[in-house]
Amino acid sequence: MTIFNVLTLIGGLAMFLYGMNVMGNGLEKLAGGKLEKIFERLTSNPIKAMLLGLSVTAVIQSSSATTVMLVGFVNAGIMKLHSAIGVIMGANIGTTVTAWILSLSGLNGDSFIINMLKPSSFSPILAIIGVAMLTFSKNDKKKDIASILVGFAVLMFGMDSMSGAVAPLKDVPEFAEVLLWFKNPILGVLAGALLTAIIQSSSASVGILQALSATGAITFGSALPIILGQNIGTCVTALLSSIGTSKNAKRVAVVHLYFNIIGTLLFLTVFYLLNAFIGFSFVDGVVGAKEIAIVHTIFNLSTSIVLLPFIKVLEKLAYLTVKDKEGEGNKDNIEEQFKLLD
């Protein structure tokens, strides 16, 4: 792997992150103030709240953005902590949509329809339409739609650049040896969490892992703990956004962290216990973009289903972590009422 491959990789990553940012901003602008009203109305019970979190995150393509919004809503007194927990669970499922879109690049076949389903085929068309709309349209709503199209196209060009840049690594024995380290669950989880914490997006870090899987050197055993760690790393954004907010807003960020840590511990424990007794044959098999998307979805879906009945327990954990000082609980409630009046 030459210096030019490294530069292409860094450039591809920059395009990928920029495209995701542009697309996310366009989607949020298009939704406008409607999201706040939707959050306010549809969080009456945990299942509704989870479905809402799933839908909103699938649209704006970022669980971090959804959780940051929740921190803001709880801080403003628009939403209760109990309602926000269900939305967080749904947000973790919704963020898996990006991985599925990126996995389309691995479709194989010679037919026109299959080739057109590949993001590398339809991205240039979206880019042309988006740029034309940005250039000639004066309507703000159309410009937001154009930003979404251009952002997605840039994201996919970045993904292709990264995949092309890391392709030579499949012939480097040292690269395969490094990946073997991540078969250790602790190292894998830490690596995934650190990468996601740095780039502030689990969708982006899963995309990077999918790009690396094109080398054919990543096994299921090394990919699994990294994927779980990526879910923990994405909590950093919400934790940073909660600095200087009310106690309840801080608790939203803490619940997001606990949800992913507990889910990771449960998933790893069950998986490795079953592997010890049954012996999964696929553990040492090569993993691709589609398999990464499947694991990402199964983890988030199963964790949400398992922890949904324990919303009160997560809420209690948050209260034990972020404690009220004596007499401070009433003060927070009064402040929230004044914010609502404002």
Results as ranks from 00 to 15, higher is better:
residue 141 K to H: 05
residue 225 P to R: 03
residue 45 N to Y: 11
residue 184 N to R: 02
residue 100 W to K: 12
residue 171 D to S: 13
residue 106 G to Q: 08
residue 329 G to F: 15
residue 333 N to I: 14
residue 292 I to Y: 02
residue 115 N to V: 15
residue 38 I to A: 06
residue 158 G to R: 14
residue 256 H to C: 07
residue 140 D to C: 04
residue 77 G to Y: 09
residue 58 A to V: 12
residue 307 L to S: 01
residue 186 I to S: 04
residue 159 M to G: 02
residue 310 F to T: 03
residue 144 D to C: 04
residue 139 N to S: 12
residue 190 L to T: 11
residue 7 L to H: 10
residue 159 M to P: 03
residue 122 F to D: 05
residue 43 T to S: 09
residue 213 S to N: 04
residue 118 K to V: 10
residue 293 A to K: 15
residue 263 G to E: 02
residue 185 P to D: 04
residue 55 S to Q: 01
residue 69 M to H: 06
residue 334 I to N: 12
residue 56 V to F: 03
residue 38 I to V: 11
residue 85 I to P: 01
residue 98 T to Q: 10
residue 111 S to D: 14
residue 223 A to Y: 09
residue 217 A to W: 08
residue 46 P to Y: 05
residue 117 L to K: 09
residue 100 W to T: 11
residue 245 T to L: 07
residue 92 N to T: 03
residue 171 D to A: 09
residue 186 I to P: 05
residue 296 H to I: 15
residue 121 S to R: 02
residue 168 P to Y: 13
residue 252 V to P: 10
residue 45 N to I: 12
residue 151 G to H: 08
residue 274 L to W: 01
residue 34 K to M: 08
residue 180 L to V: 01
residue 126 L to D: 03
residue 324 D to N: 12
residue 25 N to D: 12
residue 245 T to E: 06
residue 338 F to T: 09
residue 31 A to P: 00
residue 161 S to W: 15
residue 194 L to W: 00
residue 80 K to W: 14
residue 279 G to E: 07
residue 316 K to T: 08
residue 162 M to G: 12
residue 282 F to D: 08
residue 12 G to Q: 08
residue 156 M to T: 10
residue 68 V to F: 08
residue 28 E to P: 00
residue 302 S to N: 11
residue 181 W to H: 10
residue 139 N to E: 11
residue 220 F to N: 10
residue 311 I to C: 05
residue 74 V to H: 12
residue 183 K to Y: 02
residue 268 L to H: 00
residue 334 I to T: 11
residue 82 H to I: 14
residue 249 A to S: 15
residue 290 K to H: 12
residue 124 P to S: 07
residue 77 G to F: 08
residue 171 D to L: 09
residue 293 A to N: 13
residue 114 I to Y: 06
residue 153 A to F: 10
residue 62 S to E: 00
residue 113 I to Y: 10
residue 120 S to V: 15
residue 273 L to H: 02
residue 158 G to Q: 13
residue 187 L to N: 01
residue 26 G to V: 01
residue 41 R to Q: 08
residue 82 H to S: 13
residue 234 T to N: 07
residue 66 T to Y: 00
residue 296 H to R: 11
residue 35 L to S: 08
residue 230 Q to E: 14
residue 273 L to G: 01
residue 243 I to F: 03
residue 163 S to R: 15
residue 109 G to D: 06
residue 313 V to D: 09
residue 176 A to E: 10
residue 61 Q to K: 07
residue 48 K to L: 13
residue 15 M to A: 12
residue 332 D to A: 12
residue 234 T to P: 04
residue 139 N to Q: 07
residue 312 K to Y: 05
residue 266 L to H: 02
residue 171 D to T: 14
residue 173 P to D: 10
residue 323 K to A: 14
residue 81 L to H: 05
residue 4 F to G: 03
residue 19 G to N: 01
residue 166 V to Y: 10
residue 150 V to Y: 05
residue 127 A to Q: 11
residue 245 T to W: 03
residue 110 D to P: 07
residue 328 E to R: 13
residue 154 V to M: 12
